[in-house]
Amino acid sequence: MVSEDNCNEDKNTTEATVDAACIILRQCERSGTVRRVIHTASVTAASPLREDGGGGEYKDFINESCWTPLNLSYGFSNVHLDPGVRGGDTIQPHLWSSIPVIVAPLTGHAAHHNSLLFLQALLGSVPLAHVEDVCEAHAFCMDQSAMAGRFLCAAGYPSMRDILDRFAARFPEVKMRLQQVTGEGVRVRADTKKLEDLGFRYRYGVEETLDCSVECAKRLGEL
Rank of each mutant, 00 (worst) to 15 (best):
A20M: 07
I62N: 05
T33G: 12
D162A: 02
L70P: 05
E207N: 15
A155F: 03
S31I: 06
E215W: 09
N8S: 02
G54V: 10
H138G: 08
P105V: 00
Q120Y: 06
R177G: 04
S213N: 00
T68Q: 10
L117Q: 00
M160C: 03
A21C: 14
S97P: 01
F76V: 03
P158M: 02
C153H: 04
N8E: 04
R219C: 10
A139T: 06
G108P: 04
G53M: 02
D211P: 09
L116V: 01
R36P: 03
V37K: 07
L49F: 03
V37E: 08
E51R: 10
E51S: 11
E173N: 14
I102K: 02
A45N: 11
C66A: 01
G149L: 10
G199T: 07
T68S: 09
H109S: 14
K175F: 13
L198Y: 10
S77N: 11
A110C: 05
A217Q: 00
Q144R: 15
F76K: 07
D19R: 02
E196K: 05
P69D: 08
V134T: 01
I24P: 02
V131Y: 07
K11A: 13
A121C: 10
G54L: 15
I23K: 13
V34I: 15
L70Y: 07
H113C: 03
L152I: 04
K193E: 13
I62P: 01
K218S: 08
F140W: 08
V181H: 00
E136S: 14
G84M: 05
H109P: 08
A104P: 01
G108H: 06
E29V: 04
L164G: 03
I62F: 02
T14R: 14
A217N: 05
Y157Q: 04
E4Y: 10
C153A: 09
T192Q: 06
R50P: 00
H80G: 11
G56T: 00
G87C: 04
D197E: 14
D191T: 01
L195D: 03
A139R: 08
E4T: 15
T192Y: 06
V2D: 14
A217P: 04
T209D: 11
L220H: 04
L210K: 06
M176R: 12
V101Y: 08
K194G: 15
F140M: 04
C28D: 10
L223W: 10
L128C: 03
A190I: 01
N78F: 14
L220P: 07
E64G: 03
R26N: 14
V206Q: 02
A190T: 11
L81Q: 01
I91H: 13
F76R: 08
W67R: 00
C22H: 13
A46W: 01
Y202W: 10
F171T: 01
E196N: 08
P100V: 06
V43N: 09
E51M: 07
E29Q: 15
G156D: 12
H94S: 13
L106N: 05
G32R: 11
S73W: 06
N12M: 05
F200E: 07
A110F: 09
V101D: 07
R201G: 09
D211L: 06
G205N: 11
V101S: 03
N6E: 15
N71M: 11
I163Y: 08
D89Q: 13
Q179K: 15
R203V: 08
A45I: 01
L198A: 12
T182G: 12
S3T: 12
